[in-house]
Amino acid sequence: MPETSVERTLGILLAKVEGIEKSIADGDKHRAVVHRRVDEVVESIGELSVEVAAMKGDVKDSKVITDEVKQWKQRGIGALFVSGIAGTALGGVAVGFLAYWWEAIMRVVRAA
């Protein structure tokens, strides 16, 4: 009977060792998947870094153009303001001219 007990104990120990080996193998597979995914993430981040660097140049160029357009807009608004003042002044002069010379103009029109 003692041999049976020893064999049984050895069987239990062997099963436990096999379970541990299976667990280690499963862990290795899982770690391999994790490493593959980490590598993919690192590669994606590298690609993003390159794209961001390229975009920085584009944004810098766009800022130069945007600043230029803002200057044009400011100049245009200034020109419209000056034109408005000049138009108002000319309109006032024309009205003053008509008011001052109205009677003379009407005499010439009636005589014709």
Rank of each mutant, 00 (worst) to 15 (best):
S49A: 13
E47D: 12
E68M: 07
V6F: 02
A104S: 07
W72F: 10
W101E: 12
V33C: 06
D26H: 06
A94Y: 04
R8P: 08
P2W: 09
I45K: 09
M1R: 05
A94H: 03
D58R: 10
E68R: 04
S44I: 08
V108F: 12
G27D: 09
M106C: 10
G19Q: 01
M1A: 03
K29N: 06
T88E: 05
S62L: 12
G84I: 12
F97I: 07
V38N: 06
G91I: 08
T88H: 02
V42S: 09
E40T: 07
A79Y: 02
V50Q: 07
T9C: 11
R110A: 03
A89H: 11
Y100P: 01
G76F: 04
V42W: 08
A89Y: 12
R110H: 10
M106F: 09
E103A: 10
S49Y: 11
E40V: 10
D26Y: 04
I24V: 14
A86F: 13
S5Q: 14
E47S: 08
G84W: 04
V95E: 05
M106N: 11
G46T: 12
K29W: 04
D61M: 04
D67K: 00
V95L: 07
G19I: 01
V38K: 12
V34R: 05
S23D: 05
W101I: 00
I85D: 03
K22P: 03
V59L: 15
I65S: 09
R31V: 15
M55N: 04
D61F: 04
V108Y: 13
W101Y: 11
S49L: 08
I24Y: 09
V59M: 06
S83E: 15
R36P: 05
E43I: 08
V108R: 14
A15Y: 00
V64F: 01
I65L: 14
M55C: 00
V93M: 06
D28M: 03
V34C: 07
V33M: 08
A104Q: 08
K73P: 02
T9Y: 05
A32R: 03
G87D: 12
Q74K: 11
R36Y: 10
R110S: 06
I105Q: 02
G78A: 13
E47Y: 07
A15M: 00
S83K: 14
V52C: 00
G19S: 02
V108Q: 11
L90S: 14
V82H: 01
V38A: 13
K56M: 14
T88G: 15
M1D: 03
V82M: 04
I77C: 01
A25P: 00
T4E: 05
S44G: 14
D67P: 00
W101M: 00
G78L: 01
E51Q: 01
K60A: 13
I85A: 07
V33W: 04
V59I: 15
V108W: 15
E40N: 13
S49V: 04
F81V: 09
G57I: 10
M106A: 08
K60R: 12
I45N: 09
E103F: 02
I65N: 11
V108D: 08
A25Q: 11
V69Q: 15
A94V: 06
G84Y: 00
